[in-house]
Amino acid sequence: MSGEAVLTVNTGSSSIKLAAYQVEAGKLGEQLLKAHLSGLPNSPRFSAGIAGQNIDDVPDSVAAAGPSKSDMVAALAQWARKQLGKTSLLGVGHRVVHGGQDFTGPVRTSDHVIAQLRKLSPLAPSHQPDNLAGIEGISSLWPDIPQSLSFDTAFHRTQPRLAQLYAIPRELSESGVLRFGFHGLSYAHIADELETALSPPERRRVIVAHLGSGASLCAMQDGRSVATSMGLTALDGVPMATRSGSVDPGLLLHLLQDKGMRTEDVANMLYKRSGLLGLSGLSADVRELLASDAPEAREALEVYAYRVRREIASLAGALKGLETLVFTGGVGENSWQVREMICAELGWLGVQLDDTANRQGKRSVHDTGAKVRTLVIPADEESVIARETLSVLR
């Protein structure tokens, strides 16, 4: 390979995703490679695609890397750089989950920026420290290469003030205790896709359901976020794989004051032992729950679908109507059963699936007579990060 490229890094709690994109005449070109190291730290699994070839064996250099996320990111990035051959690497872009009030778009890294982001770690404890570890890994490997940061919260900063406020004392809101929302990079990609695929009336009022290990929904008006299910943290909203989603604040007080639970135990329960895993007592994986005959598995999926339906109805209220519904994320893209469970009770809103198209995983899965267009669009946060990296480098 030759020419110029940018590298993207998405460092999570149990996985690291890398991708490289060609840069031609200052514009983003085709994806040159992608790599995914999952099952960390105990059961690493590796998959990569380079020039149409698939690789499944963990590279020796990555397997031999130290246990820290920064070491693993450095080793994986070095492997990716080797695959790019003579290609000149212009910069590296990172996904950062929480940007708070200050970061409304991509920025270049600096000591000051990193210090601000560390202060936000308590609001995204399952993500932010790992995101920052990825930045450290690249800095240790290539100290002089430009690095850009893309924020999951930035897309939602267009929301009206009423959508951001909690009904708490005003001084807390003024200090930054607000509804921020997440999965913004995924929603930005969907907004870009819809801009070219649909007419302006068809994308005037859109709800996007990003359903994966983490799950949220976003109401978009003309491509801009106006409301979303997550709030100050990525714990809010609908149930997820292991996260609870919204619960009664009084429940937390009850657990702390009456049940004598420690704060860290409550946090562990809400982030790691709730959601589909907590509801079923069996698994956090939708595929395993769908394959199970246990009534607890079915009930967990029914609660999940019910809560997503309620959120769709709520966001339709924020939009004052609905033209298009989009499913994305690992579950949203790949589970026709979950899409069917969610949409089966939304006929009153104009949502009606074509059973055959839905089961075949077509892009358009709505019935020809449906009032609401329903689409399935694969998530692609990496291309958004790459474009934002180029904008920062300019």
Rank of each mutant, 00 (worst) to 15 (best):
L7K: 12
S14A: 03
K17F: 03
G29T: 09
G29V: 07
L32P: 09
L32E: 12
L37K: 08
N42C: 10
R45T: 13
F46L: 08
F46E: 09
V58K: 05
P67M: 12
Q78R: 15
Q78H: 15
S88D: 13
L89K: 05
L89S: 04
G93I: 09
H94E: 08
H98K: 04
Q101W: 07
R108H: 07
T109C: 03
V113Y: 01
V113D: 00
Q116M: 09
L117H: 00
S121G: 05
P122N: 09
Q128R: 00
N131K: 02
L132V: 02
E136S: 11
E136C: 03
E136V: 05
I138W: 13
S140V: 06
P143R: 01
P143I: 04
P143E: 03
L149V: 09
S150H: 06
R161V: 15
E171M: 07
S175K: 09
V177I: 11
H183Q: 04
H183F: 00
D192L: 13
E193R: 12
E193D: 11
E195Q: 10
L198C: 15
L198A: 10
S199W: 03
P200E: 07
P201G: 08
R205C: 07
L211Q: 00
Q221F: 15
R224S: 05
L235M: 14
L235I: 13
G237S: 02
M240N: 07
G245P: 11
L253A: 14
H254G: 14
L255S: 03
L256A: 08
E264F: 09
N268L: 12
L270G: 03
Y271T: 07
K272Y: 10
L276R: 11
G278Y: 01
G281H: 14
S283P: 03
A284W: 02
D285W: 02
A297H: 06
A300W: 11
I312W: 10
I312P: 01
G317V: 09
G321P: 06
F327K: 04
T328G: 01
G332A: 10
N334A: 14
S335E: 05
M341P: 05
E345D: 14
W348C: 10
D355N: 07
R359K: 01
R363T: 06
S364W: 15
V365H: 09
H366W: 07
T368I: 13
G369N: 06
A370R: 04
I377P: 02
I377R: 01
P378N: 08
R387V: 04
E388Q: 12
T389R: 09
S391A: 15
